Measured scan of single mutants.
Amino acid sequence: TYTWNTKEEAKQAFKELLKEKRVPSNASWEQAMKMIINDPRYSALAKLSEKKQAFNAYKVQTE
């Protein structure tokens, strides 16, 4: 089980997950979700809006 003390740690864990699963920077949210949804870190960020925000930040960083 994973635990995160801060929102920032949770966001980092979520981005690490995207990186580890090699989600391409041109992937849509739907494509990315299919690649990461079974990992416990997918739940790091509770709100869908937070997940999408972190995903978009990840995409910008990896382009």
Rank of each mutant, 00 (worst) to 15 (best):
F14K: 00
P40V: 11
A54P: 01
Q31W: 07
W4Y: 12
K51N: 02
E16N: 10
K59D: 03
Q31E: 10
A27H: 06
A27M: 09
A57Q: 11
V23K: 03
V60H: 14
E8V: 06
Q12A: 12
A44H: 03
E50M: 05
E9I: 04
A54M: 08
L18G: 00
M35A: 06
E20F: 07
A57C: 14
K15T: 15
R41I: 02
M35K: 05
E63F: 06
K11Y: 15
E16T: 10
K21L: 06
K15M: 15
L45K: 00
E63C: 15
T3D: 12
S25E: 07
I36C: 06
L17R: 00
S25P: 12
K7Y: 11
S43P: 05
K11P: 03
K19A: 14
S43W: 14
F14P: 00
Q61H: 08
K15N: 15
E63Y: 06
A32K: 00
L17Q: 00
A32F: 01
V23T: 03
A32Y: 02
T62E: 14
A46S: 14
Q31H: 08
A46Q: 14
W4K: 07
I36A: 02
K21F: 10
K21M: 10
N5L: 13
E30W: 09
V60P: 03
V60M: 13
T62N: 11
L48P: 06
N56W: 14
N38T: 11
Q31S: 09
K51G: 02
W4Q: 07
A54E: 10
E16A: 14
K11L: 15
Y2G: 15
F14H: 00
E30A: 12
Q53A: 13
Q12S: 10
W29L: 02
T62P: 09
N56V: 10
Y58T: 02
K11M: 15
N26M: 06
Y2F: 14
N26P: 02
K21C: 08
K19Q: 15
E8K: 07
T6W: 03
S28I: 07
P24F: 03
A44C: 06
E16P: 00
A10P: 03
R22V: 07
T62L: 14
K19E: 14
S28P: 08
A44Y: 04
K52L: 12
E63K: 10
N26Y: 10
M35D: 05
W4H: 06
M35E: 05
W29F: 10
A32R: 01
K34V: 11
L18F: 04
N38R: 09
M33K: 14
A13M: 06
D39N: 01
S25W: 13
F14M: 02
N5K: 12
S28Y: 04
S25C: 13
M35F: 06
N26E: 09
L17E: 00
K19G: 11
Y2Q: 15
S25A: 13
K59M: 06
P24S: 06
K59P: 02
V60E: 10
M33C: 12
E63N: 12
K52A: 03
L18A: 00
D39W: 00
Y42G: 02
A10G: 08
K21H: 07
E63M: 10
Y42D: 01
N38G: 14
F14Q: 00
Q31C: 12
M35Y: 08
A57T: 11
S25T: 13
Q53R: 12
E30R: 13
R41C: 02
Q53H: 10
A54Q: 06
W29C: 03
K47N: 10
T3Y: 13
S28T: 13
K47P: 07
E8I: 06
S28Q: 06
R22L: 14
Y2M: 15
T62I: 12
L48S: 06
Q53G: 07
E16Y: 05
M33P: 00
E8G: 08
N56R: 12
A57M: 10
K51C: 05
N38W: 07
T3K: 10
K47A: 12
W29S: 00
M35T: 05
P24T: 04
K52T: 05
A13P: 01
T3R: 07
T1G: 15
Q53P: 02
A32M: 03
P24M: 04
V60K: 14
L18S: 00
K11D: 13
T6C: 07
E16C: 12
Q53M: 12
W4S: 06
E8Q: 08
A13K: 05
Y2P: 15
A54Y: 05
I37H: 13
P24Y: 03
K34S: 13
N56S: 09
K52G: 02
Q12C: 13
Y58V: 02
A32D: 00
K15W: 15
L45S: 01
E16V: 05
S25H: 12
M33N: 06
A46P: 15
A46G: 13
Q53T: 10
K34M: 13
R22E: 12
Q12H: 10
P24V: 02
S49Y: 07
E20K: 02
T62Y: 12
K34Y: 11
W29A: 00
Q12D: 11
A32S: 03
L48H: 05
R41P: 00
K59C: 11
E63W: 05
W29E: 00
Q61L: 13
A46N: 09
M33G: 02
N56L: 14
W4V: 05
E20R: 03
A27V: 09
S28H: 08
Y2D: 13
R41N: 02
L45M: 05
E30F: 13
I36G: 01
S25Y: 11
V60T: 13
W4M: 04
K15Q: 14
E50G: 03
A13T: 05
A27C: 11
Y58P: 02
N5P: 10
E30Y: 10
N26F: 09
L48D: 09
A32G: 05
E9L: 05
T62R: 07
N38Q: 09
A46V: 11
A44E: 03
E20Y: 06
T3P: 15
L45A: 02
T1N: 15
E20W: 04
P24I: 01
K34H: 10
A13V: 10
T62S: 12
A32T: 06
I36P: 00
S49N: 09
A13L: 08
E50D: 09
N56C: 13
N26V: 07
K47E: 14
N26R: 07
K34R: 14
A32I: 04
V23M: 02
T6M: 05
E9T: 05
D39Y: 01
T3C: 15
A27Y: 11
I36T: 05
N5M: 09
E8F: 08
L18H: 00
Y2C: 15
E50R: 03
K19F: 15
K59E: 03
N26T: 12
W29K: 00
S49K: 10
N56A: 13
Q12P: 00
A32C: 13
L17G: 00
A54I: 11
S43V: 08
L18Y: 00
K21P: 01
N5G: 11
E8M: 06
E8L: 07
A27D: 02
Y42H: 02
A13G: 04
E30D: 10
K51T: 02
A27W: 07
K47D: 13
R22D: 11
A13E: 04
A27I: 09
E30K: 14
I37N: 13
K59G: 04
R41W: 01
W4E: 08
N26D: 15
L48A: 07
K47V: 10
V23P: 04
A44F: 04
S43N: 14
V23W: 01
A46M: 10
I37S: 11
Q61E: 14
N26G: 09
W4A: 06
S49M: 06
Q53C: 11
S43K: 14
K21D: 01
A10I: 03
K47L: 13
A54D: 02
Y58E: 03
A10K: 07
I36W: 01
K11I: 15
Q12N: 10
F55W: 08
W29V: 02
A32P: 00
R41K: 04
E30V: 09
R22F: 07
N5A: 15
K19P: 00
I36V: 05
V60W: 11
Y42I: 02
R22K: 11
K21A: 08
T3N: 08
A10E: 06
E16G: 09
F55C: 04
E50W: 07
T1Y: 13
K7E: 13
S28G: 07
I36K: 00
I36D: 00
K19H: 14
A57L: 12
E50C: 06
P24H: 04
K7D: 10
A57D: 14
E50Q: 07
I37T: 08
K51S: 03
A32V: 07
T3W: 12
D39R: 00
Q61N: 11
A27K: 04
Q61F: 13
P24K: 04
T1W: 08
A27E: 03
A10M: 07
T6Q: 04
E63S: 14
Q61D: 13
T3L: 11
I36Y: 01
Q31Y: 10
K7M: 08
K19L: 14
V23D: 01
T1K: 15
A54H: 04
Q61W: 14
